[in-house]
Design a protein around this nucleic acid. Structure first.
Length: 475
RNA sequence: GGUCCCAUCGUCUAGUGGCCCAGGACGCCAGGUUCUCAUCCUGGUAACAGGGGUUCGACUCCCCUUGGGACCGCCA
């Protein structure tokens, strides 16, 4: 029987989960689920200085919000020091790693000289010749030291599932540091131990990790571990075609969540950055993505994060969401902007949301667009009430006609009956009647039709707003 | 600078030697529906980086050039 697929998502909690990380998580999820395997979440918090609990929480809560569930973990590297220590000692005992007591000043100087000579900077191997006894002696005397991997300096090649064969000459790396001391292993080392310990079959990560791979393979060999399969994903790029980072603005998942992008749209968008199933379909549910996903259709070149495309997808999903659900999702956004939603009946709220369903790219836009419904006093330029080059006099007269129509409406007070009555009165001059009315009701240059607004506002409030507009025109 | 990776419309991409004077989507532009906005519909704009091979035939295979990116930490 073939061993079942196990992938992992292994972020370091040194900042908020961002779109680049998330895409890596998504691809790991898709690959694992496509093969009926498991996704493991591992928190790489070996850097005690920079790791923070709140970032771990940010990551986990966002994954949960997006529906990217995991099957094992979260494991924390900070809780696994014993495991690393054992492997570290094994390497030390077998002479595959050694203590180094070179000072950082010394090393900086070495590096500088190498660079001056146009060489690749690497550790010269000064402490290689130290005997175990000498090293023990120094440690006992409290001399600070690090642990270096004894690099055999071979050529290493591996099969990347998206790029094919990749070759490196590891002699260019020198003896790299794998632990700050026996208690504090470093990333490159913990990854090797954990991926083996957690029986990871496929390491799917960003292509920025390609240069780490040969080192990790070297350590796997030294420890007698089998290598997992590797798949290096193209990077997510900003507008400037460089790796997504702070420079391109806030790319945290939390930001997009707060702005009201639906999880489906984010997932759909990210999945198609660097991968596509080949057809002309553009909209995919998570389930469909799982069905169709395969690493051999992953792109090799980096992909620019196109915010416009995300907006389009987001708007699309908002339009697809059932009204009742959308209203529920929109509530927190209205509440946050100070709309007294307790005082509104849910029917009314729902019709308001419905009005903007086709106008929203993200739920966070709702308070701004629909705000006029909840205000007692609208603020707008009086001139906005005038249709084309209409005079104040004419505008006021137009509003008078509109209010007469509204007054004359007997049951039902609905968008349809309002539209019918108003259009009848307007005749050929629709703009002349509808524009001033719509502005009087909404206070905005752009808004849904006056019929819908008046219908939700109710007759009294609609007429009150018209009177107020007339007052503005004549004063 | 060294090492590695990459290269089709502005962007995401389809294309695995003839189906391609290159298809779709987003964006943008124009038109239709319309009081405005949005939705929706129709149409348009726009790309195989360059040069050599291989081949009857290259977007597709090979090489070079150019361009871009990543990495070069006692970060991950």
């Amino acid at each position: 029987m073939k061993t079942s697929v196990r992938t992992r998502f292994a972020p370091s909690p040194t900042g908020p989960l961002h779109m680049g990380n998330l895409r890596t998580a998504l691809f790991n999820y898709l690959f694992a689920h496509h093969h009926k395997g498991k996704l493991i979440v591992r928190v790489e918090d070996t850097d005690k200085e920079r790791s923070e609990k709140r970032w771990e929480e940010d990551m986990l809560s966002n994954l949960t919000w997006l529906g990217l569930t995991w099957d094992e973990g979260p494991y924390r590297q900070s809780e696994r020091t014993k495991i690393y220590k054992a492997s570290l000692e094994k390497l030390l005992n077998e002479g595959k790693a050694y203590w180094c007591f070179c000072s950082s000043e010394q090393l900086a100087q070495e590096r500088e000289e190498q660079e001056k000579r146009g060489e690749a900077p690497r550790y010269a191997g000064t402490c290689r010749s130290l005997s175990k006894k000498e090293a023990q002696e120094k440690l006992k005397n409290g001399v600070p030291g690090v642990i270096r991997f004894l690099n055999p300096g071979r050529k290493i090649s591996f099969e990347d599932l998206v790029r094919g064969t990749i070759e490196f000459d590891t002699s260019l790396s020198g003896d790299f540091v794998i632990a700050k001391d026996s208690e504090n292993p470093l990333y490159n080392f913990t990854v090797v131990v954990d991926d083996h310990d957690m029986k990871i079959t496929h390491v799917i990560r960003g292509e920025d990790h390609i240069p780490n791979t040969p080192r990790q393979i070297l350590m796997q060999e030294a420890l007698g571990f089998e290598s997992p399969q590797y798949a290096h994903l193209p990077l997510l790029l900003g507008e400037d075609r460089t790796k997504l980072s702070k420079r391109q603005g806030d790319m945290s998942v939390t930001r997009f969540r707060q702005e009201g992008y639906l999880p489906e749209s984010i997932l759909n968008f990210l999945a198609l950055l660097g991968w596509n199933p080949g057809g002309e379909q553009e909209v995919f549910s998570l389930k469909e993505l799982v069905e169709k996903f395969s690493l051999d259709r992953v792109q090799k070149g980096g992909a620019v994060f196109d915010a416009k495309r995300l907006e389009w997808l987001s708007g699309h999903y908002i339009r697809e969401t059932p009204l009742e659900e959308l209203t529920k999702l929109a509530l927190p956004y209205l509440e946050k902007s100070g709309v007294p939603i307790e005082s509104l009946d849910s029917k009314k709220l729902q019709s308001i949301v419905q009005l903007f369903q086709e106008r929203l790219k993200a739920l966070g836009e709702l308070p701004e667009l629909a705000g006029f419904f909840f205000k007692t006093e609208l603020e707008y330029e009086t001139d906005l009430l005038k249709w084309k080059d209409m005079s104040s006099q004419k505008a006021s007269e137009s509003l008078e006609r509109a209010s007469n129509v509204l007054n004359g409406i007997v049951e039902p007070w609905s968008p349809e009956s309002l539209e019918k009555a108003l259009l009848e009165t307007a005749g050929e001059d629709k703009g002349g009647l509808l524009w001033p009315l719509r502005v009087a009701l909404s206070g905005r240059k752009a808004s849904p039709p006056p019929f819908d607004i008046a219908s939700i506002l109710g007759k009294n409030e609609a007429i009150r707003r018209i009177r107020h507009a007339q007052h503005l025109l004549t004063s």
